[in-house]
Every structure is written in C-alpha cells, then in structure tokens.
Design a protein around this nucleic acid. Structure first.
Lengths: 355, 355
DNA sequence: TGCAAGCGGTTTATCGTTTTCCTATGCCAC
DNA sequence: GTGGCATAGGAAAACGATAAACCGCTTGCA
C-alpha cells in the first residue's frame, strides 16, 4: 500500500526539491525565500501532507515516543500515574506506548526489547526484580530509562518513588494513638520495594513504640486474587483477635473488607482498617475508609519530565531518585472504638526530593 | 546515534548477503540451504540482533501497532475494555498505542492524524460526534477502524457497542417491581449514543408501564465534575421527592452518593439508587450498590479481533456492528423500602450479534 | 587581493529493511 | 555438448525522509 502523499509530491507541486520542503517542515526558513516558503506551505496545505513518522524516525533514530511499562493497569493507582505521564508527554510532543507487564519478568523483558526495537526514545518502567541484568545493561548503554514507584536496590537508575516506610509509619502511629493494641499488616511476598518498605515501616514504628518482635503480626501472601482475603480471615480468627488491620494495596483492601464482612465483624468497633492508596471510592465505602494517600499524578509527572530530559540531553544527565511523601486521610474505618467520629482530617507529611 | 547491530553486521558475520538474512528472519527458508540457515541463525543469536521495526515498517507500511483512542482513561470501565483489547492484541503480536481524547474532538482529531502519520495498522476508537467527517474519510479510504462502545448514527463503521436501551430498561423495570413510583434519571448532555440511549431506555420503559410524559424525571447535565452532584440535589429537593435515582455513569454514581449523603437521606429507605456499570467496589459501597453490569472485557476482545481482521484482510471485510447485552446486579441500594434484602441475585439478558 | 561566508536552492548519500530482479551452478535429458 | 530448469543466493532498487556536500555567484572583511 502506497502512502497517499509524500514529500516528493509536495516538492513537485511546489516546483522545488524535497530537501527544500523538508527544511521548511522543520522550521528551517533561513535558507529559503519568502515566496518559496509560501508556495511550499500552500502545497502542503492543499495536499494535506503529513510527513511519514516512520521514515523520519529511521533517519533520525528518534521517534518522539516514550515506552511505559506498568505492572498492573487494572489498579486505579496506575491510572493516576499514567495521567501524569500522559499530560506531561503530550505537552512536550511525545506519544506513549503503554505496556502491561503483569509483574511477570518474562513479559517485561519482551516489552523492553520490543520497545527498543521500535526505537522509542526512552522507557518509564515499574520494574520487576527479575530483570536486573537487563536494567543494568540499559544503564550501561545509556539508554534513557526511568524507574517509577519501585526501585531495585543498589541499581543507580534515576526514578521517582514514594516514601513507603513513612506511609506505613503514619498509619501505624495513627492506630496506636487511637488506642489499638494488636495491629496486623498484610502484604505481598516478594522483593518488591513498595511491599517490603511498607512492612519495614510497620515494623520499625511498632518497635519504636515499645512493642516486641513477637507482638508483630505480619502476614505475607502471594500476589494472587483471594490470597489476601484468606490471610485476613486467618488473622481475624486468632485469639486474641487483632484490633486493627493495615492493608498495603488498593485491591487488597477490598479483599480484606470482604473477609471482615464475611466474618460478621464491625469496622471500626471490632477491628479498625487502614487502606493503602486513596481512590475515588474510599470515601463511600462502608464505613468510609482511612487510607494513605499517595501523590500518584505528581509521580507520573516527575517521571515523564525526567525521561524527556534524558531523551533530549545529549550528554548523560545527572542520575537521581526523587522521593515523594504520602499523607494519611483519616476517616471512620480507623476511629477509636469508643470515640466520636473524626472524619475528614488529614495528617500531611510534606514533600521533598532526596538523592 | 548508530544502531548497535544491523542486518548487515549479521550478514557479514555469517558470510552471506543481507537478502539471505532477511529471508531467514521472515521464515522464508525455501531459498536457503540448511547449513546457511543455521549459520545465519547462529550469527543472529551471537550478536543478539533484533531487526529495526522502523525500517521494516517503512518498507512494508505495516507496523504491527494498533492505535486506541479512548475518551476517558480515568474511568475503570475503560480499563477492562483495554485489558480485553490488550490481551487479544498481544496474542496476535500487535502492540498498542493508547491515546486519551478526553472527549475533545480537537484532541481526538490530533490523535487520529498522529496515529496515521505513525502508520499504525488500524485504529480502535470511542468516537466523539465532532469528528464525523474524519471518520467518514477513514471509512472512504478503507483505513482500518473500529468503533467501540459508541457509534455515530448513520455511519457504517464496524464496531462493538452495548445495548444501552436494554440496560436502562432492566434498571427501571427492577425499580418498578420494587414499588418505586417516582423514578428519576441523571445523564450527561450531548449526542453521545451511550447517554442518549440510556435515557431513551428509561423513557420507553416508563411509558410502556403506563407512566405519562409529565411523570418523567430527566435531568441532563454537562459532563463536568460536580454537575451530577448538583443535579441530584436539585432532584431530591423536589416535592414530592423522587423515590429512585438511576445513574448513567460510573463516576456520576459517586457524585450522586455524595449528594444523597449530604442531604442526610437513607438508601434505599428514602431513595433507591441504581448505578450504571459494575465496578470492583460497587459491592462494598454503603449500601452495596445495584448496578447494570456491562461485558467490558468482552467488548475490548471483540473490538480487537475485529480490527486485527481488518488489518490483515486484503480486501474490504464485511462491516457490521456487534451489540452486547448488559445484565442487572441487584444489591441493597435498590431494595424495596419495606422488604427483606434480596442480595446477589442477577437478572441476565443473554448476548447476541446483530447487523 | 584573497579568503570565507551567504544567497536559494539542488544532488547525493544515508537510515535498515524488504523485494524484485538477476546470476551462478549443477543436474538432467536430448 | 547443449538447452532447460531447478536451486541457492546476491546486487540493487525501493520505502520516505533528512543531512551533508555542493552549485555558481556575490559580498564582507582583513
């Protein structure tokens, strides 16, 4: 199938060479007279000519496309991140190629190779630990790449992450203040920094408040539908029963809610619940849910700015990691069992950048 | 920036011409001996060669990329559609280029042109009415395009849509059976088929059940945050007050919930609420929400299959529209004010295809 | 006086593939 | 021998755009 209109057609129509047309297209007016420029622009308009991005990309080895690899698009958290990325990229004239790795290193690797094959200018990725070698290679070859939300320990890839330790810490401190004694946490198993750090935040905060190792109630579950629900039920059947649950994920929270409901327990009277990651529906749950709010949009924005900077920079730009701070949104689900509601209050934590 | 390994490098290493390498890459073994083939494959492996998709696309005018233009990625409904599209395309070896039109015809037009410029093999789009001419042109030139969820009246574009009339009808009939007398609907203004059809379904069903024109309570609001909330408050302050509200959108439902809560009304005692489009959180709302469930994943799947078929088909394939049937998920929010809960029941409606 | 830069462009090379012709070579039947 | 015809593979021309070199002439500047 032949392309409708090529630069040659425009050139012929305007009575000039293709080069002249190309120069005008690229805003290089200095070498053409005003009349010629006008004639060419008129021809472009009349033929509704638009340059073939493939040919342009082949020649320049730049495509104005950024690859984005996310672990789970089903999670609304990523939508907000994506929106931040998208808005920023669109403003800068970049198109997105979005891929879903499903947290599977094999799929992720495939996507990375595919994106490179397509000569995307850079890649934003929520990395799985399984492809460390691949990322090391990207870093070594200077291929523009930025991590988002997660990082890989001891890998100097630029990125944007959340302060997960702080997030869990905020939640635990809030529950302690509310008089909760037996706080449990459910998290996914694996070397994913977002998960391990939240558990770490839980642990250090409790220990700092005088709890002992054996008081900790940590339930690690595989990242698979239903696993968190079972774990919650297991926890809630313990004797004595935990009086507070800390979820570490958006979707996990819904499973825990399900578990609590199925056991006929009341929130917050029997057990308090704090979710991780604020969504549009948290406010309307039964009861309204206390959550750790994360600046997702902002994270996407920063990641996009970072990758664009890397794409444009001729020399290797500085490599650093930005850490964004979460805040706690307090609602009824974590209200002290014997207290008046304290709905809508927010404990902020500020935002900052560190190396 | 020079590409690391090209076909020429492989050819040199294997002691053959680029032609031979290309032939082998494309599975055309009939013209090369077994030894040569083995030698070339070995060279490819050793050099970790992967063909440049840009050059290949330029030559063939095929990119194995499908463009997807959606009106609002923030809506989880589209995520499920997207997942259907993605799974299907990945299986078939296609990559996605996802764009957000934000229901703005100008942005949509820009995306369409951009996608064509990048020589995507086909486009799946949730169309805005503002670009009818553009779509007519696509249709005329035979550029593969498939509509999803919406359609444009009198435009013979292949597509997949939901039976929206039926969806609203199911909801209204359910409310009528529950004894509700003053059923109101809130919908967005505009020539968007999903919205107009739902209103139509509401209208025809009520009229068919003996209501008169003046009994209809239709509130049309602009598609803008907060508008639905105001409309709901306006409706609920009427005297007599509506005893049932039918939402027509995912996000609108949350706004309506907000309105009801702010007025201190109880669901379903004071007013019943039925949402449109089932999400993962509907079950956990306060109270659990009755909704119209739509086969979103399936819709994406079918749209993807359709576009792939069009991309591959040398001749113009048959152009038809698939209509998917919704079902009602009954939960507490629509329970008759004076009745026992009837939670979890589902009224199915079957699925079919029509021209 | 001599060299370089600018005028408004064109020619030509190039990006990495695929594709369309070709060309050897060997084998067979006559 | 020689013509015919597979077989295995190569050379070169696309594909559409951009970058570099260059055209013959004029002008600026040391």
């Amino acid at each position: 199938m032949k392309q409708r209109v090529t630069i040659a057609d425009v050139a012929k129509k305007a009575g000039v060479s293709a080069t002249t047309v190309s120069r005008i297209l690229n805003g290089n007016y200095s070498q053409t007279s005003a009349e010629t420029t006008a004639r060419v622009l008129e021809a472009i308009r009349e033929l509704d000519y638009r340059p073939n991005a493939l040919a342009k990309g082949l020649k320049q080895m730049k495509t104005q496309v950024i690859g984005v690899i996310l672990s789970n698009l089903q999670n609304p958290f990523w939508l907000r991140v994506l929106k931040g990325i998208e808005d920023t990229c669109r403003k800068a004239g970049y198109q997105l190629m979005i891929c879903n790795s499903c947290d599977d290193p094999a799929i992720e690797a495939e996507h990375i190779k595919n994106l490179q094959t397509r000569n995307v200018d850079g890649i934003i990725v929520n990395p799985t630990p399984g492809n460390r070698d691949l990322f090391e290679q990207l870093l070594a070859t200077g291929y523009p790449c930025v991590f988002v939300n997660r990082h890989l320990p001891n890998l100097a890839m630029p990125g944007v992450v959340m302060n997960n330790i702080r997030g869990a810490s905020l939640a635990v401190e809030h529950l302690l203040e509310g008089g909760r004694q037996r706080i449990a946490i459910i998290a996914y198993q694996g070397e994913i920094t977002t998960w391990t750090e939240r558990v770490e935040g839980y642990k250090t905060t409790l220990l700092a408040h005088g709890k002992r190792e054996q008081d900790l109630l940590i339930e690690l579950v595989p990242n698979r539908p239903g696993a968190a629900r079972s774990a919650a039920i297991r926890l809630l059947k313990r004797n004595p029963r935990p009086d507070a649950l800390l979820s570490t994920t958006n979707l996990m929270t819904l499973e825990i809610l399900d578990a609590i409901q199925s056991l006929g327990l009341r929130i917050p009277e029997d057990v308090a619940l704090v979710g991780y990651d604020e969504t549009m529906w948290c406010k309307y749950l039964n009861p309204p849910l206390t959550t750790v709010r994360q600046p997702a949009y902002e994270m996407g924005e920063i990641a996009a700015k970072r990758i664009i900077q890397l794409c444009k920079g001729t020399r290797r730009t500085k490599l650093d990691v930005t850490v964004l701070e979460p805040e706690l949104v307090v609602r009824e689900s974590s209200r002290p069992a014997s207290a008046t509601p304290d709905v809508g209050a927010t404990i902020a934590a500020g935002t900052g950048t560190s190396g």
